[in-house]
Nucleic acid binder design. Structure first.
Lengths: 210, 210
DNA sequence: GTCTATAGGGGGATAGAC
DNA sequence: GTCTATCCCCCTATAGAC
């Protein structure tokens, strides 16, 4: 269902062209403000053809959403269950992966969060996120650290929330942060790169004092 | 321009009823998905009357947006410039104020962030946020701590970003976090309350190791 | 100020030719 | 598979009566 990036780029089928265009427009404008006409135009085809392939705007949207969330989760899942790396290294990898991902696709976070907020059902139809997290090597390692007293005992939810907040929110709130700090786009991206190394340290420091 | 809450609640004028309804619908659905018919219905008046008072959907939206952002910023501004409290106390107050605010109005953060992302111009037309922050007592205190070596030297932007991330993101990503951690709505709100006290500690711990 | 009625346009979806 | 033409609903905005 979800093809590899290489295949997608080589695949010049009409269906793929429409999906690429749809992805671009949906991510930029959100579901409600998107016009199927714009998607068609972006794909270099006709409106009728869009409906021929995907039946409706809604169906096309759900497909794009599913694929986007899947790639979103997958980035995490791979790292979470790596047996060879330690907890701190995993935090570093997660931060690094997501920061690279969002740097290339800056609209993904706000898009996913917003649509999810409007329609939480979209979440349930996807993946067993809950099991994915609690059965992970990552979580087991976290618990070990707590048992050893290296991480102060507390709600594990806070660990997850804090880590993801530090990684994702700077992208979600970028317009405000850029304005307040008077940072240009290029500088801001540099800052995000620096944060790859800082976030693991911060997470570590925080968790000692929960 | 922006009236006090007490006045708003007592003010039963048609104009105010429309604004209240508009606020509710816009916050819930976002600009694009909002129908002026729904606003009118919610206010118990007719569609024509809405345009009589506010000229257009867009004008009404801009007004609501402006007021929302204003109250958003004001919450911060008051604390930032308090001469009597120390830096750590300020972080505590900011966290506490925002968590209470978002608990009452859970749609505000994602709404503001999303609309701002779609149309960053909305930001520029508001307030001199930049000056507000850098000329604040808060920022001066931050610099003093850095000079004293109590906060490790680093980009001040990170201080702001991290604090706001820990405060706001849990509300923005609530659907996902609830799902992953298997938390019910009431429990999640409890968690947010607990975070009022935890966030200042975390911020402090982080800033020692920038 | 408030209403009813309607203009006017936009957008999603389909029929039907090629 | 792909196009043109068109349907039809929905939504914003306004005209005009009260």
């Amino acid at each position: 269902m979800v093809k590899k990036r290489e295949n997608m780029l080589l695949d010049n089928s009409t269906e793929e062209k429409i999906k690429e265009s749809a992805r671009k427009v949906f991510l930029k404008k959100g579901y409600a403000a998107t016009r199927t006409r714009d998607i068609a135009e972006g794909a270099g085809i006709n409106l009728a053809l869009l409906n021929y392939y995907f039946r409706s705007k809604e169906k096309l949207f759900e497909l794009i959403m599913l694929e986007t969330m899947f790639s979103f989760m997958q980035k995490m899942a791979v790292v979470l269950n790596d047996e060879d790396s330690k907890l701190e290294k995993k935090v570093e990898l997660i931060a690094s992966n997501y920061i690279d991902f969002f740097t290339e696709e800056p609209n993904v976070p706000i898009f996913v969060l917003n649509e999810m907020h409007k329609n939480p059902r979209l979440l349930f139809d996807t993946l067993p996120v809950r099991e994915l997290f609690f059965n992970s090597v990552f979580f087991r390692q976290y618990q070990t650290q707590v048992a050893k007293g290296k991480i102060k005992e507390g709600n594990p939810a806070n660990f997850l929330i804090n880590m993801m907040s530090l990684i994702i929110f700077p992208f979600v709130g970028s317009p405000i942060f850029k304005l307040i700090t008077g940072t240009l786009d290029a500088q801001y991206l540099e800052l995000m790169q620096e944060r790859k190394k800082l976030i693991p340290r911060w997470v570590k420091a925080m968790m000692k004092s929960m």
